[in-house]
């Protein structure tokens, strides 16, 4: 694998994770638990979808064969997507949406901190912008985790159940392969072991503060680094890609 190929795959991994998470979150817009929170979650969705757009634009540029960010988003098949599986899971209730968001926001927070030091200036720039946004997202979603954990019995049970069921998807965030190996040598990619240590400490403190428990001895799911997904992704793409696929000659 050349450095360029590795970089393309690396950007897709980050871009797809944002794209699919934004796609899922956008299902909440207009249906949130109350108006202020609907607006706040949509803000997060907008930031994440905006980041996806910048990243896929850059991926298309790196690839250099004339594809655009929209071609990458709307004309690839599910096996060519590299988003982590946790992003494609159905939203579930608001506790599950928040729990997933905290786990991913916290990852992004430390990931973008590292990535903003990347020798690749475009990636570093995107990371710096996203870090500002994610700092706010993490504050917002952490506050909700605490409210649910230490709110009513119902909210506590719901959010604990969500953590229990989501935990098996968390290890994927930190998996590294040949792509990382090549790019870490170049000072471009982030060492995810560094992120993992910080993430574990942060989440463990937050979960404890929220009177919740981190699930133990969980068997971890894997696959997204190879483009292997849950059953949900193909449905997401069928919906998201419908128009560009139905009208291949059209510009929007």
């Amino acid at each position: 694998m050349t450095t360029k190929e590795a970089l393309f795959k690396y950007i897709l991994r980050i871009g797809d994770t944002n794209l699919i998470l934004g796609q899922r979150l956008s299902e909440w817009t207009g249906h949130g638990p109350f108006l202020e929170e609907d607006l706040a979650l949509t803000n997060i969705t907008l930031d994440i979808t905006g980041a996806a757009k910048s990243l896929l634009e850059y991926a298309a540029l790196v690839e250099g064969n004339g594809r655009t960010e929209d071609d990458l988003a709307f004309l690839r098949n599910d096996r060519q997507f590299f988003n982590v599986q946790i992003t494609e899971l159905p939203n579930g209730d608001y506790a599950r949406t928040i729990a997933r968001q905290v786990l991913v926001d916290c990852f992004d927070f430390y990931f973008y901190q590292e990535l903003s030091k990347s020798k690749d200036e475009t990636l570093a720039g995107i990371a710096q912008k996203s870090l500002k946004e994610v700092t706010y997202h993490l504050r917002h979603t952490s506050a909700w985790l605490e409210r649910f954990g230490d709110g009513t019995e119902e909210s506590h049970n719901k959010v604990q159940l969500a953590l229990n069921e989501l935990w098996q998807y968390t290890n994927e965030l930190f998996e590294m392969n040949e792509v990382d190996e090549i790019l870490i040598k170049e000072g471009i990619a982030v060492d995810l072991n560094v992120v993992k240590t910080k993430w574990e400490k942060h989440i463990s403190d937050l979960v404890e503060k929220s009177t919740l428990i981190i699930p133990q001895n969980v068997f971890m799911q894997t696959g997204s680094r190879k483009g292997i997904h849950t059953e949900h992704l193909a449905f997401i793409l069928a919906e998201m890609q419908a128009l560009p696929r139905m009208y291949p000659d059209a510009k929007w």
């Binding site: 817009t29 249906h31 607006l39 998201m240």
Partner: peptide, 28 residues
């Protein structure tokens, strides 16, 4: 909101999300 998940370009998706959010803001 019915078309947010099916907006045919990333730009269109962001613009529509922001629009629907604006309408919520107007309600508020």
């Amino acid at each position: 909101g019915n078309w947010i998940t099916r907006a045919p370009s990333l730009r269109a998706k962001v613009v529509l999300l922001a629009k629907v959010q604006d309408e919520g803001g107007h309600g508020l």
